[in-house]
Amino acid sequence: MTDTLRRGYAPSPFGQLHYVECGAGEPVLLLHQTPRSWTEYLDVLPLVGTAHRAIAMDTLGFGASAKPTGPHSIELFADAAGALVDALGLERFHLVGHHTGGVIAVELAARYQDRVASVLLSATPFIDDEKRRTAAERKPVDHVVPKADGSHLLELWNRRRGFYEEGQEAALNRFMVDALTVLDRVEEGHEAVRRYGMDQRLPDITARTLAVCAPGDHYSLPGLAKFAAALGCETRVLSGGHVPVPEQLPEEFAKVVLEWTARG
């Protein structure tokens, strides 16, 4: 199915932004987690593309998109995503964000109220005063110190291995490629999430919103109730999976996207 995918670069004030798209129709912009790239949606894109113009971008600083020299922030990521939206001429679009991508989707939905048709927040962390206050106490997620014997590669692999089942090593390989591409700044996306003033932006979201999470993703699962309380939105627990659920259950993930976007 990957032969239906179309790659492109869009100009922006930050440099070129890389994206991959599939299909035609009302656009759906898919935003990935840290430190991934569009390949998180490799198997989801063709399925969503059966009914939409499905677009998965590489977040600024990740994948094949431009690498800024300044500090990362959710606001900066959203600036770049907004630049892509404008460059592609997306007048009205749906948003899908997974983990960090969901946090970026919150900021975009707060900014582009009239242009966002719907929002799907997948395994999105809920950032409030408590999360920001304790950010400095949290252990690094993906940071490893490069070593001459290459043992840091196994360390990085093992940090994520528990999220993947046996037989899902191809997806874990894609994670490794993405993480190694930004190894010198691999942790900054997580740090940007923990600093973000999400709770102050949620009241500005006017689009109908659905929050979903895999049952094994204990990092983000508690956030469903918090999003429901803050937004009055619907929530759903998927049938299985962990942190990389778009790769583990692409058919179910795409079905949820298609059902939610069609409800408008």
Rank of each mutant, 00 (worst) to 15 (best):
A51T: 14
H52T: 03
A54P: 02
A54C: 03
A54S: 05
A56G: 09
M57F: 12
D58N: 04
G61T: 02
F62P: 03
G63M: 02
A64W: 15
S65W: 07
S65R: 07
A66H: 10
A66V: 09
A66Q: 08
K67P: 00
K67Y: 00
K67L: 02
P68F: 08
T69Y: 02
G70H: 09
P71W: 07
P71M: 05
P71I: 02
S73T: 13
S73E: 08
I74T: 11
I74K: 13
L76E: 11
D79R: 03
A80D: 13
G82H: 09
G82C: 15
A83W: 01
A83E: 07
L84V: 09
L84I: 12
L84W: 14
V85Q: 15
G89P: 12
G89D: 04
G89V: 10
E91Y: 13
E91H: 11
E91P: 09
H94V: 10
H94Q: 09
L95P: 01
V96G: 02
V96E: 02
G97P: 03
H98L: 00
H98S: 02
H98I: 00
T100D: 09
G102T: 00
G102R: 01
G102I: 02
I104Q: 00
E107C: 00
L108R: 07
L108T: 11
A109Y: 02
A110W: 03
R111N: 04
Y112W: 05
R115K: 09
V116D: 10
S118C: 11
V119F: 06
L120Y: 14
L120C: 13
